[in-house]
Design a protein around this nucleic acid. Structure first.
Lengths: 131, 131
DNA sequence: AGTTTAAATAATAATAATTCTTATTAAGAA
DNA sequence: TTCTTAATAAGAATTATTATTATTTAAACT
């Protein structure tokens, strides 16, 4: 991603800071509410625009779960464990799995794979205890 | 999934038939437009309800790409190659990858994995030729 | 068969997430 | 400073999805 010509406006800096300090995978609304504490006049459209912009520039990553966008600043390639009850996302790193998948990626006809990740669906601790 | 008490209404039969005959991963609208040719009076809410219902019963599967739901009748566990340009989804089967991932799944703390699949992101043939 | 009951459907209103539009503001170049 | 362009704020518009309500269908019972 071309990160050479990025204009770091206050809004973009605050959004990046918020993501770095956030433990989890915030939705657009989470980011909006969080950033609003410092930039009280920020517009939600600006949050949308800049999350998209920063994701295109490769400074953050977008994850889509159950139809809603979530974001993360963890740029290390990793996988996600997703709770099928509450939608909670847990990062999980396994370089060996990624390598294995990339090796297999070569077998897909007429498709040039650039990246891969694996999703693990199941029940998180909190939801398990509720039963 | 409990498939014992499924009531096969005309609407459900037509939705299942459409999915079986469709080569790809249709959206709700695709299904609606397709089924409407036979059941001209069907409501879109019925399509939503029944796609959800059939997915819960395990007769079809739901895939979420870029925030929109898509469906498939291919029940064999498989992975998806997703074009980052046009969003096209290609099924890709690799039992060895699934087994490998499930083995690694045991390492995730406090999370009971029920299923796993791997996404391959890249450029499809059609989009590659356009460049 | 006729009546009762519950589930399924159609139509459409409501909601949520996201994108678009337009006027304003900020920032850099001339 | 003035010109130019990109970024932003505000809110309207759009899209995908869910909820509501009246009607229809179908099964269960008498």
């Amino acid at each position: 991603m071309d990160q050479s010509d990025i204009k770091y406006t206050n809004q973009r800096i605050e959004i990046l800071e918020f993501l770095k300090g956030f433990d989890g995978h915030p939705s657009v609304d989470d980011v909006y509410e969080g950033v609003r504490k410092k930039l009280t006049r920020i517009s939600k459209a600006t949050v949308y625009n800049n999350l998209k912009f920063l994701a295109e520039k490769g400074l953050i990553k977008e994850v889509n779960v159950k139809g809603v966008s979530r974001f993360e600043s963890n740029l290390e390639p990793h996988h996600h464990a997703i709770c099928i009850e509450c939608g909670e996302i847990i990062d999980f790193q396994s370089e060996e799995l990624r390598e294995y998948a990339m090796k297999i990626a070569g077998k897909i006809d007429n498709f040039k794979v650039e990246s891969t990740d694996t999703n693990f669906y199941g029940i998180c601790k909190k939801c398990k205890e509720m039963k």
